[in-house]
Design a protein around this nucleic acid. Structure first.
Lengths: 344, 344
DNA sequence: TACTTTCATGAAAACGTGTTCATATTGACG
DNA sequence: CGTCAATATGAACACGTTTTCATGAAAGTA
């Protein structure tokens, strides 16, 4: 067994060809199933590949114009449950198709995005998954012209030509706030996300819409930026509690900032949900683990990742396929951080 | 500006050469700083690269034998805080060095590892980071012979030739159990991890050692497999509580299984920590978020990832450098899930 | 000026694969 | 048996880069 002697001898298609007594072109044909190859030769080639422990060289393959079985994934950051859960969903679908993943972290740095995209589309990847892109205008146009398969996750509204997977942000907040109103709350604080993210805008729109529909007066001092971070949530909550007439309930635009809100409320000696009701958005894993467990609007992160990957594969199959926009529905998850309004 | 006209025209080194009026070899020299190039030509080349929006083709570069600025990362799975936090640490160091990451998820499937490693070492990656490899014997030998830079994270003991980064698993458990004993506990359950992981064995060894040192009788019915999963922890806890003389405290070999233990205890109507003390290992982010917050042995996951990447870069610089083994120290994080033993 | 030495630069080969094109071989049909 | 169509296969080129090698020019020395 040669493979035992030299496990990393970088055996190439030509080595296989020599052993099997054919040309390397024929080996390539067997690998890719492009044309008919005589049964005996095919047999010999397969056998030689096995004996030599042949592993195709991805770089050469993609350089020569072949399929790569790699998809590129651009994310703003890693580590928090949000990105992690989505990646998990993507990964599930990818490995079902035997694809691998090239992961690029932009660290929210706008400049990096176009370069990464450019590099990925030069043959490295068969398709692209963009999570929460900051400023895609620079390259989306080019991707489309190239008919390069890509799907945008959780960012909608910057154009109408990209296929996207998202959640019903507006409706989700609408449902959540409606629930708070049903509990008797009238002054409801809103800790918003980054302005430049369209999901932030949609969530805020949901807040505004429900107040309007229910005829509740709108006070813009109740809307405070939280930037989707725990610290941001903390500061926002402090600001809200310092108001002359503080809210009896606070809706945070994502779970992470809701954690900050809870920290701040507790720092004031408040009990949750007795003294104040708090609701988040996302339902990341840790939302269910804390005590009291966070009432939140569930965004199906795993499913979003999975669906996006699934959609991407359809485009890889059929690059001219029609644009698609998928909105997975959110769901209000009632746990323990919201209670009926008690006048003090 | 050509770059505005054709953002994705795949401009190559030859295009740059033509515009600058030199040969493509010279362009390559400028890019890689290999030999002196006349100042005026260098200037023209840089200018042309900028105007055309040149982005090097990774595949071609690695195929031709150049440096890749990519490191390969093999992980068993994603999504849970454990892997996520380590990846975050790795990512921090990588982006500081301007490197990118090729992520492979083995999904605990043993067969996949050698193929991935083979593929990565064929020029795709400059180095390899192996997180919790299952059966590295198949390829580590080859990596070493090739002098291919790699670092193993959180798996020690399978050989003495690989550079590794880990934590003081044994000492961590020793400290944790000592604390439980100080609280008065004598019957302490242990929910163990997978047998084949050496960190599991070390943690179990720490448990045995402290009992021995403190002269506490050892009862092997108190050791139950939990497999590092939440469900496994749940089942293990059920088994422990069903014992004739159930433990007054349970140490779970990792946080995720501790969550399962807590679920099971609560399902029995027990209060934590009043009725039973529970301690975990890892200190993944969600350990601090839950209520009551989990008392656990902190494993510096972020730092482990970061240090591993740092070490890998040293090997990439100097492939013949000496093997290194780094053990980062664990730390007992006392929160709310452990209380003084109360006889009933 | 003539000869050697240095050195920047272009031509060309290499990396491993996919693919086109021509050719040898087979088979069929009259 | 001869001609033509069909088809499997090998030779050669392409992909974009790095690197070696040879060459020409410039520079230095006598």
């Amino acid at each position: 067994m040669l493979s035992d002697d030299k496990p990393f001898s970088n055996v190439t298609i030509k080595d296989v060809a020599k052993v099997a007594g054919v040309s390397h072109a024929t080996v390539s044909r067997v690998i890719n199933n492009t044309t008919k190859v005589a049964d005996d030769k095919r047999e010999r080639i397969l056998d030689a590949m096995d004996r030599l422990g042949y592993v195709p060289n991805m770089q050469a393959r993609s350089l020569a114009g072949g399929r790569t079985k790699v998809i590129g994934l651009l994310v703003p950051d890693i580590g928090n449950g949000y990105t992690g859960t989505i990646i998990e969903g993507i990964d599930a679908e990818l490995s079902a198709h035997d694809y691998d993943m090239m992961l690029y972290t932009t660290h929210h740095r706008k400049v990096k995005e176009p370069i990464y995209v450019q590099s990925l589309t030069q043959g490295m990847a068969a398709g692209l998954l963009l999570l929460l892109p900051v400023d895609p205008s620079a390259y989306l146009e080019g991707l489309r012209r190239k008919k390069f398969p890509y799907v945008v996750i959780d960012h909608q509204g910057f154009d109408n030509f990209s296929s996207t997977v998202g959640a019903t942000n507006r409706q989700g907040v609408y449902d959540g706030i409606t629930y708070l109103i049903e509990l008797g709350h009238r002054r409801i604080g809103f800790v918003s996300g980054p302005d430049m993210m369209s999901c932030s805008m949609e969530r805020l729109a949901g807040y505004r819409a429900v107040l309007n529909d229910q005829g509740i007066s709108y006070d813009d001092r109740l809307i405070v930026p939280g930037n989707h971070t725990q610290l941001g949530g903390y500061k926002a909550c402090v600001q809200l509690l310092d108001l002359e007439k503080p809210p009896s309930a606070i809706f945070a635009a994502n779970d992470v900032s809701a954690f900050g809100v809870i920290d701040a409320a507790r720092a004031r000696g408040m009990h949750i949900p007795d003294d104040i009701s708090i609701m988040g958005f996302d339902d990341i894993p840790q939302a269910g683990w804390m005590t009291p467990a966070l009432t939140t609007v569930r965004q199906p992160l795993f499913a979003m990742g999975r669906q996006a990957a699934k959609m991407l594969f359809e485009f890889i199959e059929e690059p001219k396929g029609p644009m698609r926009r998928l909105q997975l529905s959110t769901e209000l998850v009632i746990r323990e951080t919201c209670a009926r309004f008690k006048d003090i």
